[in-house]
Design a binder for these strands. Structure first.
Length: 368
DNA sequence: AAGCCGGGGCT
DNA sequence: AGCCCAGGCTT
C-alpha cells in the first residue's frame, strides 16, 4: 500500500525541537551585524522592521545595509515618512530598484496613520492588508518586531527547508511555496517562544551557509549537516531546481545631457507606469530596434545637430531587459531651451531626485 | 497562473 | 561576460 505523501513528510515534534535548538545555538555566534539588528529578534522597533523588510524584498542585505541608515536618518518615524512627499521618498530609494516598493511603503505609512493611529498593527491579517506587505513581510514584522510565533518564508528559508528534506522542486513554484509555509509553521510550533530568533536563524543560515547556486554551500560548517537529506544524497547544489529562464528584451536609449552655465543640467520625469516609473532622467529617447540618429536626437530637443558631442556608451542590464545607452552631450544657453525642457537643476542637487542607477551613472560621468 | 518590476554579486 | 538571486501586485 502506498504511503500517503502527507503522512510520509510528517516530522516528530522532538526532532523539530532539536533542529530549532541547534539553529539557535548557531545564530548566537554567527549573526552578522546589520543596522536593522540593533535589538534581539522579537523586540525590534516595528517601524525599522517595516522599512528594512520592504527594502530587503528582492534585494541583497549588503545593499540595504548601505542605504537604510540614510533613509531612517531622513524619515526617523512613521509620522515623518507619512508626511513626506512621494518624490522625496523616491529620492531616498534611489539605487534600490523596484521603485513601486517605495510608493507602497509610503502608502502603508499613511494607512497606519489613518487606520491605526500611527501604530503598526501586530496582527498578521491586518499587516497583510497594508500596501506592499504580503505574507512574508507580514510574518517578519509580527515575528521580528512583536515576538509573535508566526512562520515566515523567504527564498533563503525555502531553500534551507527543501535541502534539509532532500525535496526537489523549482524555486518559487506554487507547490514549493505551499510546502515551505506548511513546514515553517510546524517548526515554529515546535518552539513558539523562540520563533523570532529561529526565523532569523533560518534566513541567516540560507544567506551565509546554505547558499544558492552558483555559490557552493558550506555544508562542512553547517549546524544542521547531520540531519540534512540533500547533503546525504549529494543534492545540495541541485536543490532547488533553477527557474526557467526569462526572455530578455533589448531597448535602445539615447540620452542627451544638456550642460548649462553654473554646472546645471536639464531633467525630465518618466511616465507613471513601466520601467523606472515616475523617476527623473536626462532627456532620453527610447527605441525598439536601433538608436535614434544624431539628427533625430537634436530635432527632438530643438537643437542643431552640430551642438551634440558624443558621450559615453554603455549597457545596463536588469533581470529581463538590456538597455543600450548612447549618450550625447550639448552645451546650451538657458534662453535657448525648448519649452518642454523646463526642469533645470544644479549638478549638486541631483541627489534630491529619484534617479535610476543608470541615469545616476550617466549624469555623474558627464557632469563630473 | 503568468507577467511585471531593478540592481548587484557570483563564478 | 554570462548567469543567478528574490516579494508583491496586477492582469
Amino acid at each position: 500500500m502506498p504511503l500517503n505523501p502527507e503522512r510520509a513528510s510528517c516530522h516528530p515534534a522532538s526532532a523539530d525541537r532539536a533542529l530549532v535548538r541547534g539553529l539557535l545555538r548557531w545564530l548566537a555566534n554567527n549573526a552578522r551585524p546589520f543596522p536593522w539588528r540593533t535589538a534581539p529578534p522579537g523586540r525590534r522597533d516595528p517601524y525599522v522592521v517595516l522599512v528594512s523588510e520592504v527594502m530587503l524584498q528582492q534585494t541583497q542585505a549588503s545593499r540595504v545595509a548601505v542605504l537604510l541608515p540614510r533613509f531612517l536618518d531622513r524619515f526617523p518615524s512613521i509620522e515623518a515618512l507619512a508626511a513626506a512627499s512621494e518624490d522625496e521618498v523616491l529620492a531616498l530609494w534611489s539605487g534600490l530598484g523596484y521603485y513601486r516598493r517605495a510608493r507602497m511603503l509610503h502608502a502603508a505609512a499613511r494607512a497606519c496613520l489613518v487606520q491605526y493611529e500611527g501604530r503598526i498593527p501586530t496582527d498578521p491579517e491586518a499587516l497583510q492588508g497594508l500596501p506592499g506587505i504580503g505574507r512574508y513581510t507580514g510574518g517578519a514584522i509580527a515575528s521580528l518586531a512583536f515576538g509573535l510565533p508566526e512562520p515566515l518564508v523567504d527564498g533563503n528559508v525555502a531553500r534551507v527547508l527543501l535541502r534539509l528534506e532532500g525535496r526537489p522542486g523549482v524555486a518559487g513554484s506554487p507547490e514549493v511555496t505551499r510546502w515551505s509555509w506548511k513546514r515553517a509553521a510546524e517548526l515554529v510550533q515546535a518552539a513558539p517562544n523562540s520563533a523570532p530568533a529561529f526565523n532569523e536563524a533560518l534566513m541567516e543560515l540560507g544567506a551565509t551557509i546554505c547558499t544558492p547556486a552558483p555559490r557552493a554551500p558550506q555544508c562542512d560548517v553547517c549546524p544542521l549537516r547531520a540531519g540534512c537529506k540533500a547533503r546525504q544524497t549529494g543534492q545540495s547544489v541541485s536543490i532547488p531546481a533553477p527557474q526557467p529562464s526569462k526572455s530578455l528584451r533589448r531597448i535602445y536609449a539615447t540620452t542627451i545631457v544638456l550642460v548649462l552655465s553654473g554646472n546645471r543640467t536639464v531633467i525630465e520625469q518618466r511616465p507613471a507606469r513601466g520601467l523606472w516609473a515616475s523617476l527623473w532622467q536626462a532627456p532620453t529617447l527610447e527605441h525598439e530596434r536601433r538608436h535614434c540618429t544624431k539628427q533625430e536626437a537634436a530635432a527632438a530637443l530643438h537643437l542643431e545637430a552640430g551642438s551634440l558631442h558624443p558621450g559615453p556608451a554603455y549597457t545596463h542590464r536588469t533581470t529581463h531587459r538590456e538597455i543600450c545607452f548612447q549618450v550625447w552631450k550639448a552645451r546650451v544657453r538657458p534662453g535657448h531651451l525648448a519649452a518642454c525642457l523646463r526642469t533645470v537643476v544644479r549638478a549638486d542637487q541631483l541627489g534630491d531626485f529619484g534617479l535610476s542607477s543608470a541615469q545616476r551613472r550617466i549624469l555623474d560621468s558627464v557632469l563630473g
